[in-house]
Amino acid sequence: MLVIECPWCGPRSEEEFTNGGEAHIKRPSKPSALSDEEWADYVFMRKNTKGIFLERWSHSSGCRRWFNAARNTITNEIAAIYHINEKPPKEIS
């Protein structure tokens, strides 16, 4: 059971958070210009990384802010927490 460090509230138990899946998926600015394949890639295809995975969390039972985390999906170690619209720290990416 994870301890997640909310950038606004500090370390809290996993039960307070909602996982939002892969981070850094940008919604296409012009969906109508995309092919069906390109659109399906945005909507459905996911990295599902084994290892350090960049993902989103929401502190849904707390401050309700979204943020990003870099978590190792094998060990569940959290390597970094960073703001939602930031890029991952250099040592991670």
Binding site: T18, G20, K26, R56, S58, W66, I84, N85
Partner: peptide
């Protein structure tokens, strides 16, 4: 509510 917050904060 979560849906609205998600889009506004993340996208």
């Amino acid at each position: 509510l979560a849906w609205l917050e998600e889009w506004s904060q993340t996208e």
